[in-house]
């Protein structure tokens, strides 16, 4: 469960206002619950621009509390690097009635 080496790639995540679902800011300027759809930024400037765009969606009541997260390509897939963000992206790690456990590590 070691943390992958820190990358400089970032994406923006937030919770969708109407239902609280975890979403990622996409390339087309929308929000998706799949991290694979996330737009990534590899420079500070790009990251700041991405976040500024997302904050406009927070101001217009689309999402709540957007912020930048570290992501990395792992096994050909875009994944958050921190455990907290992996749990947000893929759901609880506990097999539980009604919720599918998702492999996340």
């Amino acid at each position: 469960m070691a943390k992958p080496a820190s990358s400089n790639t970032r994406a923006v995540t937030a919770n969708r206002l109407r239902d609280g679902a975890v979403v990622f800011r996409t390339v087309t300027g929308g929000w998706s619950s799949r991290i694979a759809d996330a737009e990534t930024a590899s420079s500070e400037t790009d990251a700041a621009r991405l976040l500024a765009q997302a904050e406009r969606d927070a101001a217009t009541a689309v999402v709540v509390g957007p912020y930048l997260i570290d992501v990395a390509e792992i096994g050909g897939e875009l994944r958050p690097t921190s455990l907290r963000e992996r749990i947000r992206a893929y759901g609880p790690t506990t097999p539980m009635a009604g919720v599918e456990a998702v492999p996340y590590l």
């Binding site: 919770n15 239902d19 609280g20 679902a21 975890v22 509390g65 749990i87 759901g91 609880p92």
Partner: peptide
């Protein structure tokens, strides 16, 4: 005040 929190995955 109405007991509704915003957590990791939902309210």
């Amino acid at each position: 005040t109405n007991g509704l929190y915003l957590q990791l995955h939902a309210y």
